[in-house]
Amino acid sequence: MPRHVAVIMDGNVRWARQRGLPSSAGHEAGVRSLRELVELCCRWGVKVLTVFAFSYDNWVEVEFLMKLFEKSIKSELEGFISEGIRISMIGDSSRLPKTLQELVSDAEDRTKNNSNFQLIVAVSYSGKYDVVQACKSIAQKVKDDVVRRDDIDKSLIEQELETSCTDYPYPGILIRTSRELRVSNFLLWQLAYTEFFFVQTLWPDFGKAEFVDALTSFQQRKRRYGRRDS
């Protein structure tokens, strides 16, 4: 079982359009799929789930998505606390409404000691942004004589990436829904040796059967991490 599963939740709007519904209905259905996936991960021993909510580069339907994000946190927080679920958010939070920033900060603080499972939500995030912010942080530390230039290595960069919020920063498997075959600027550094699983199902229709297929595929693969077979 992978310790860390990453998901690009794609297809909410297409799902709604196919049913003659507004885009908001697709996003709301997507939230229900996410809650089911969290429950399955907790039940089956996955320790970390990172989901790509929306990217730094694609701020569409922002007002509704922000309200839905706030609503979801408020409705799920007490349940997450009782279930031992830790909530973390990665991405450029400065672009979020102040009320949402405060809500996220409160949720992270109230769940920071939970250890059963960690849900990481990538909002206003991109893999390139993550690497750039890590480089800026290291550059400032070099300027402040906190680290030397020769101290900069892979380990130091990884400590500055936003996924340093978890003990398991590297996904074992990345799942992308809705027939798309790309990573869309998500966790670019962290996906170096991740197994990919692409599924045609739109995100609101992604459930237990599709997750079982993804996990079964993962378990059948031989992971070499860049090494050749002996």
Rank of each mutant, 00 (worst) to 15 (best):
92 D>H: 06
23 S>W: 06
209 A>H: 06
173 I>C: 12
223 R>H: 14
183 V>L: 12
10 D>W: 02
188 L>Q: 02
42 C>T: 05
120 I>M: 10
191 L>M: 14
101 Q>P: 01
222 K>C: 09
133 Q>F: 06
99 T>M: 00
73 I>A: 01
109 D>T: 03
8 I>Y: 02
61 E>G: 10
100 L>M: 01
15 W>F: 15
229 D>K: 15
58 N>C: 07
101 Q>Y: 00
115 S>T: 11
39 E>F: 11
199 V>H: 11
229 D>A: 13
99 T>N: 05
192 A>M: 07
49 L>N: 07
123 V>A: 04
58 N>Y: 05
144 D>I: 05
163 T>W: 11
177 T>I: 08
66 M>E: 01
223 R>T: 06
43 R>S: 15
186 F>T: 03
119 L>V: 01
159 Q>Y: 06
28 E>I: 13
127 G>W: 02
54 F>Q: 05
218 F>E: 14
196 F>E: 01
13 V>G: 07
93 S>F: 00
80 F>P: 03
171 P>V: 11
197 F>Y: 15
145 D>S: 15
69 F>R: 06
176 R>S: 04
72 S>M: 13
63 E>R: 10
166 T>I: 15
61 E>D: 11
44 W>Q: 07
129 Y>R: 04
200 Q>H: 13
179 R>G: 14
199 V>Q: 11
2 P>C: 01
109 D>N: 13
151 D>S: 03
115 S>F: 09
199 V>N: 15
70 E>I: 00
229 D>F: 09
134 A>K: 01
5 V>L: 08
205 D>F: 02
67 K>H: 08
54 F>G: 11
